[in-house]
């Protein structure tokens, strides 16, 4: 764990840590990575990856429209709304 890896984590997760806490975040993440070494060291040769505990299958249903009756309730949660739509900044300059 170093500043470069921490910067990669921030970039990938789209978050940034305050400058004042970077040093302690680095220390904590180094402890976490040391704990995760158990996985690197584990012998998993031949083991199948387990994503879900159940064997998931596609769940099919009829392609029917189900009206959601409370559109206004959804838009009430939007930080900014105009003409029944979410407002976002321009994507292109």
């Amino acid at each position: 764990m170093n500043n470069e890896v921490l910067a990669k984590m921030e970039d990938l997760a789209l978050v940034s840590f305050d400058e004042a806490e970077r040093e302690s975040v680095l220390t904590e993440m180094a402890e976490v990575m040391a704990c995760l070494d158990a996985i690197k060291a584990a012998d998993a040769e031949g083991a199948e990856p387990m994503i879900y505990v159940q064997a998931l299958e596609n769940v099919f249903r009829e392609d029917e429209v189900h009206e959601f009756p409370r559109i206004d309730d959804i838009l009430e949660n939007a930080p900014d709304e105009m003409e029944h739509q979410f407002v976002a900044p321009p994507t292109f300059d």
Binding site: V5, L12, A13, V15, M29, I39, A42, A44, P49
Partner: peptide, 22 residues
């Protein structure tokens, strides 16, 4: 940050894929 890193190139095979096998 940790979860994103585990899924990224250079970490996926050694950590995420291995964790699922474990």
């Amino acid at each position: 940050g940790l979860g994103s890193l585990m899924l990224s190139e250079g970490y996926y095979d050694d950590y995420y894929d291995k964790a699922m096998r474990v």
